[in-house]
Structures are given as structure tokens and as C-alpha cells.
């Protein structure tokens, strides 16, 4: 049975309203504070490092994002933690919040489809995250400019911009996941806890588990045992398993773009490096090609999670 009328009706109204809610909420204040502290912490560590070492590095500006010093992790790794936290913070009560405020049935009694409500909330969350991340990005570049006194090159800006786009895609994955659980669980606390749990599992435990699972699937063959090297099959399994985690995809994409000398993200044979000038930077286009599968993976993951949430939401009863 086909339904009539456009699923987009009311989409802009929902998006604008949710966006206004996000931007004026206390949550946003917390996010802003987090963004500011992240920028300062990352720069503090990075700038000391950069000043000491690499005056002649052609990509000195990108070092701002990748350098870690002492106890302070690099901006890159902070970002890997900050983004899921922000996205989950914005999405965990998207639908069940409406439900608990008892506004859901009233809103759905207006001439809009559920599609518009869910998509509008997702878009509003994504725009909010994009604004925060862009702010963070500008803050780091600007402060770096002042503190280093070196203007960034065109290619550096382009690479940093590409990472910003990928970071937004990464945020989309966790936002979609948080919204999925906000549809599934009636209690926002349960939804938040589940999403945070999955994030912790994928970010912290999965990198430890993946090698173990990989060696169980592809036990080392005789040659590998003799040489003491892990087998090729095992390495490939390990990487495939690791890449199930969006955190891994995001890290790989960032590495490819921030370190222009990155030539491959997987296992590579020495024979494949024939003729390569090790350590020489790749052009931007080639780095983008390396990061492309990861980016597509992140976008696809957000779409898949959103669709699952959509299907669940369509089948859900609105009544109390």
C-alpha cells in the first residue's frame, strides 16, 4: 500500500526547531567548553613539540594536529574521543525525550510523516556538530597561526579541511547510533548508557580483541611460526575486524591526510614499495584516495544506522 503526500513535509520546520533547541541548550554550553579546552590542550602540547623539532618540515602546520607531547595526547586522538561524546550527547534522547514529554503523539498528529521528524532531528544534530567542529577547527588553525607565526600552506589547509569533513561524517555515525537507541529504548538513560557502552567497547576493547579473534580464525601457519611473524591471513583478518569500528576508520583516514607520507593503511609487501621514495610526501589527491574507502565506510555506517532507526521508529506505537 503506497502512502500519499511528501515525506519531506515539515522537515525544515523540525530541523530549524531542533537546531534552535540545540544551540540554546545547556548541553551546547558544555560542548563549547569542551571544544575550547580541547583546542587549548592540544595546542599547548603540540606547539612546544613543534617549536623544538621541525623548523624545516614542509607540513609544520599539520604537526599541530598530530604531535603528542608528554602526557598530553595529540589533537587527533582527542578528537577521536571528543566527537563520539558530543554526538551521543546530542542524540541520546532525540525520540524517547519526545515520548517522555508526551509531545510525540501531538506532533505526529500534525500533517507530517515520521520521516520528517527523525530526519529533521538527525540533520539538526549534524549541523550542530558541524558548527562545533568547524569552530574547533578554526580555533586550532587561528591559535596555531598566532603561536607558530608561520602561515599554513594551501595544501595544509586543504588537508585539514578534508579531515574536518571526515570528522563530521564520523560524528554522523555516532549521532545515528545514539538516535537509533533513543528509538529503541524508552528511557534516555538506558539509551545513553547503551550507546556509550558500544562506543567504549569499539574504541577501547575491540582493538585488544580483534587480534585474538583474528588468530583464532586464521591460526599462524608453519612458515609464520618458524619466522615468528604473524601470517598474512591473520593480519588481513585483524585489519578487517578492526575496521568494523568507526573509530578505527576515522583514525586511519586522519593518519592518511595528516601525514602526507602515508602510502598505505593496510599490510604492504616490500615488493610493492619498489621505486617508492620512502618518507616523501604524497600529493593531496593521492592521500585523499587512500582515505576515501574509510570516508565512504563512515558515511555508509551512518546511513545504515539511520535506516535501522527509521524502520524501528516507523513500527513503533506512539501511545503511552
Amino acid at each position: 500500500m503506497r502512502r500519499e503526500g511528501s515525506p519531506w513535509r515539515g522537515l525544515s520546520a523540525v530541523t530549524m526547531k531542533e537546531l534552535a533547541d540545540h544551540l540554546s541548550s545547556a548541553r551546547m554550553r558544555v560542548l563549547e567548553l569542551l571544544v575550547l579546552l580541547t583546542a587549548l590542550a592540544a595546542l599547548y602540547g603540540a606547539i612546544r613539540q613543534v617549536r623544538d623539532t621541525t623548523a624545516e618540515d614542509p607540513f609544520v602546520f599539520l604537526r599541530l594536529f598530530t604531535s603528542a607531547s608528554g602526557q598530553l595526547p595529540s589533537f587527533m586522538s582527542i578528537l577521536g574521543f571528543l566527537i563520539p561524546l558530543m554526538a551521543i550527547g546530542l542524540g541520546f534522547d532525540a525520540i524517547n525525550g519526545e515520548y517522555n514529554r508526551r509531545t510525540l503523539s501531538r506532533i505526529l498528529a500534525q500533517p507530517i510523516y515520521r520521516d520528517a521528524l527523525l530526519l529533521g532531528k538527525f540533520l539538526a544534530g549534524l549541523i550542530t556538530l558541524a558548527i562545533s567542529l568547524s569552530g574547533l577547527w578554526l580555533l586550532v588553525i587561528g591559535l596555531g597561526l598566532i603561536m607558530l607565526g608561520v602561515p599554513p600552506g594551501t595544501e595544509e589547509i586543504a588537508r585539514a579541511l578534508a579531515v574536518l569533513v571526515i570528522a563530521i561524517a564520523y560524528a554522523g555515525v555516532w549521532l545515528a547510533a545514539a538516535m537509533l537507541f533513543s528509538v529503541v529504548f524508552r528511557s534516555p538513560a538506558t539509551a545513553a548508557l547503551t550507546t556509550l557502552g558500544i562506543w567504549l567497547f569499539l574504541a577501547v576493547l575491540w582493538p585488544l580483541l580483534a587480534p585474538a579473534i583474528a588468530s583464532a580464525i586464521a591460526p599462524p601457519d608453519l612458515r609464520a611460526m618458524l619466522t615468528g611473524q604473524p601470517g598474512i591471513a591473520m593480519l588481513e583478518w585483524q585489519q578487517a575486524l578492526l575496521r568494523l569500528s568507526p573509530s578505527q576508520l576515522f583514525t586511519e583516514a586522519m593518519v592518511a591526510l595528516f601525514n602526507p607520507s602515508t602510502r598505505a593503511l593496510g599490510t604492504i609487501f616490500l615488493s610493492q614499495l619498489h621505486g617508492a621514495v620512502i618518507g616523501a610526501p604524497l600529493p593531496l589527491g593521492q592521500s585523499l584516495l587512500i582515505a576515501w574507502p574509510q570516508t565512504v565506510g563512515l558515511v555508509a555506517a551512518s546511513i545504515v544506522l539511520f535506516v535501522i532507526g527509521y524502520v524501528c521508529f516507523q513500527r513503533q506505537e506512539v501511545r503511552a
Binding site: M1, R3, E4, I112, Y113
Partner: peptide, 11 residues
């Protein structure tokens, strides 16, 4: 069920 928007616009 088929044309909810038309119904919800007037109800």
C-alpha cells in the same frame, strides 16, 4: 492509513 496527511491536516 493511506493518506494520513490529508486526514491530519483537517483533524
Amino acid at each position: 492509513a493511506r493518506d494520513p496527511l490529508a486526514v491530519k491536516r483537517r483533524v
